[in-house]
Design a binder for these strands. Structure first.
Lengths: 244, 244
DNA sequence: CCCCGTTTAATTGTCTGACAATTGGAAGTC
DNA sequence: GACTTCCAATTGTCAGACAATTAAACGGGG
């Protein structure tokens, strides 16, 4: 056997791939209605359950949505930024946990990307973004806030910063990445929670955004990254000591 | 009716969500075997086809893989960086085309992220990365290269730069983003193809990586971004003129 | 002529039961 | 002990049926 020829894929896989290709290449446009399940079954020479499995695959990727009834059927879905982001988050989260991505690596990637949009955020931030950041800082300053809510507020703060860059593509990419790393981040802040220092750095970031000082913003982000990594290595060391 | 209560989801959707949750939260670990379709059907009180549709949904997200035979079944899949990236690319590509993301926006996001990992790339690049970049530059210098191959080489060059940062999470995120924007980029370079200028800028980038000069690398990337955006606006203007 | 309830047809969602294909292990044989 | 054969478990597929849902066609009353 020269090359381990890939095992012949299932019919439902093939059909899903064919339809996916039709959508991605634009042969099927947003809003277009796919043939009914019965018609597809006849076209591809398979039974309805097989066609349905193919359609479910596409539905899982938000490529189509289905509606019952007389004018129902499967329609090419308009992929919203939100839906795409949700998918990216689950994928990235799983990827990070399954591949045992280290805290260092995740942290580095996250801050590198966030710093990438800091200059844009400083240049274009609107009052609404500043308000969101200030509101989250206020929440974080409340000692009664639970750990979970503190972390959620942390994410919301950084999302506001990213959104301030005014680039939906950046927001989509970044928000997915930041959100995916949340579990790892939680692991740290739950154990070593010096909230005052974090709030202080958030204030520095928000202040830099307000005065539109890209350099100050970058410096504050760098400081936050350094501090986060310090926390991380401390926690890792403690954990290693416990396992010894 | 106070709030338009979300229409009750399909059983297969529910079951898929339940299993997905079990995987994401770690109740099911990589390599674990899910119950057989018949068992799942009994557990959830549905028929086998319904269970199968749920499983196909998970398979579409690469969360599980199935095998036939005596010891077969559905197993929690190890999500590789490659598989995750492939998914991200199709999602992002579709997102950009469907939401009519402008060239300016896409370009800005792409270069912002790429510049984010340039300093890391300069600091950590290995000989292998430099070789890959040089090889692509050599390819691009060949006038006989087709437009398609030139664009592919362009992508490969930038991937080499990203990979040089030595952070798999960054590579994963960036490669997905860059690859997704390729169709938009192609639209430009196919029409206004001043290859010499692009190759020149690529040489500047590779040179900066070689000498580990983060500032020079950033400058070269900025120049490439400026040039690309000039091309883009020129093409857009021409297109607008044609439509008038 | 217009408005409103009813019927109807189309379509997806689900069930049942069956058979084919595949694959590893168990039983049997040399 | 090694090899072959058979078997059982499991997924992949099919056919047919019925329920649920939805919009459009239809028809009656004003």
């Amino acid at each position: 056997m020269p090359a381990a020829s890939a095992p012949r894929p299932d019919r439902s896989t093939e059909i899903a791939a064919a339809l996916r290709d039709a959508i991605v290449t634009g042969r099927l446009l947003v809003g277009d209605r796919l043939p009914s399940e019965a018609e597809l079954a006849e076209q591809y020479g398979v039974s309805r359950p097989t066609v349905r499995e193919a359609l479910k695959r596409l539905a899982a990727q938000s490529l189509i949505r289905t509606r019952r009834g007389a004018t129902g059927g499967a329609f090419v879905n308009h992929l919203s930024f939100e839906a795409a982001q949700a998918q990216q988050i689950t994928t990235s989260t799983l990827l990070l946990s399954m591949n045992a991505v280290g805290f260092e690596t995740a942290c580095e990637a996250r801050f590198a990307m966030e710093r990438a949009c800091a200059p844009l955020a400083c240049a274009r931030r609107q009052e609404a973004h500043l308000d969101r950041m200030r509101a989250e800082i206020a929440r974080q300053s409340d000692p009664a806030l639970s750990d979970e809510d503190f972390c959620a507020s942390d994410v919301a703060f950084h999302r506001a910063l990213v959104d301030a860059a005014g680039n939906p593509v950046l927001s989509y990419q970044l928000a997915g990445a930041v959100e995916a790393m949340q579990p790892l981040m939680n692991m740290i802040t739950f154990t070593a929670r010096d909230r005052a220092r974090i709030v202080e750095l958030h204030e520095a970031i928000a202040g830099a955004a307000e005065t539109q000082s890209a350099r100050a913003c970058d410096a504050a982000l760098s400081a936050l990254e350094r501090y986060t990594r310090e926390l991380g290595s401390a926690v890792m060391a403690r954990r290693a000591a416990q396992q010894r």
